[in-house]
Amino acid sequence: MGAQKGKDLMVKISDGSTYVTVAGLRSRRIAFNAELVDITHAESAERWRELLAGAGVRRASISGRGLFKDAASDALVRSAFFNGLISDCQLIVPDFGAISGPFQIAALEFAGEHNGEVTFDVTLESAGALSFAAL
Score class of each variant (00 low, 15 high):
residue 61 S to P: 08
residue 113 E to D: 14
residue 130 L to I: 10
residue 43 E to W: 04
residue 100 S to N: 10
residue 34 A to D: 08
residue 105 I to K: 01
residue 94 P to T: 13
residue 60 A to S: 10
residue 96 F to S: 08
residue 114 H to M: 11
residue 91 L to H: 00
residue 82 F to C: 12
residue 92 I to G: 00
residue 67 L to A: 14
residue 43 E to G: 09
residue 42 A to Q: 11
residue 91 L to N: 01
residue 10 M to C: 07
residue 32 F to Y: 11
residue 4 Q to D: 03
residue 98 A to W: 10
residue 39 I to K: 08
residue 62 I to Q: 04
residue 32 F to I: 01
residue 121 D to N: 14
residue 70 D to I: 04
residue 74 D to C: 12
residue 21 T to P: 01
residue 76 L to D: 09
residue 122 V to L: 13
residue 106 A to D: 12
residue 29 R to H: 08
residue 118 V to K: 06
residue 127 A to T: 07
residue 6 G to Y: 00
residue 132 F to Y: 12
residue 126 S to D: 01
residue 118 V to Y: 07
residue 21 T to K: 01
residue 125 E to T: 15
residue 100 S to R: 11
residue 117 E to I: 14
residue 88 D to Q: 11
residue 117 E to D: 13
residue 32 F to H: 06
residue 113 E to K: 15
residue 37 V to F: 03
residue 90 Q to S: 12
residue 124 L to V: 07
residue 61 S to I: 12
residue 108 L to Y: 15
residue 89 C to H: 02
residue 135 L to T: 01
residue 15 D to C: 03
residue 24 G to R: 05
residue 133 A to S: 14
residue 97 G to N: 02
residue 8 D to G: 02
residue 44 S to Q: 10
residue 43 E to A: 09
residue 106 A to T: 08
residue 12 K to M: 11
residue 123 T to C: 12
residue 73 S to P: 03
residue 75 A to M: 08
residue 135 L to Q: 05
residue 90 Q to F: 02
residue 86 I to A: 04
residue 130 L to G: 07
residue 135 L to P: 00
residue 89 C to Y: 03
residue 35 E to P: 06
residue 119 T to A: 15
residue 60 A to W: 05
residue 19 Y to I: 05
residue 37 V to I: 09
residue 103 F to H: 06
residue 4 Q to I: 12
residue 110 F to D: 05
residue 37 V to H: 06
residue 2 G to T: 06
residue 32 F to M: 08
residue 65 R to Y: 02
residue 85 L to V: 01
residue 119 T to Q: 14
residue 93 V to L: 01
residue 10 M to P: 04
residue 101 G to R: 00
residue 5 K to D: 10
residue 11 V to I: 11
residue 9 L to M: 08
residue 6 G to D: 05
residue 72 A to T: 05
residue 39 I to A: 03
residue 104 Q to Y: 13
residue 107 A to C: 06
residue 24 G to D: 08
residue 89 C to V: 06
residue 42 A to E: 14
residue 40 T to F: 07
residue 120 F to E: 08
residue 135 L to R: 07
residue 67 L to H: 10
residue 23 A to P: 03
residue 18 T to Q: 09
residue 105 I to D: 02
residue 47 R to D: 09
residue 112 G to Y: 08
residue 49 R to Y: 00
residue 41 H to L: 05
residue 125 E to S: 14
residue 99 I to A: 08
residue 109 E to D: 13
residue 87 S to Q: 11
residue 60 A to K: 03
residue 3 A to V: 12
residue 103 F to A: 06
residue 32 F to S: 06
residue 42 A to F: 12
residue 108 L to V: 12
residue 126 S to N: 07
residue 71 A to K: 09
residue 51 L to N: 06
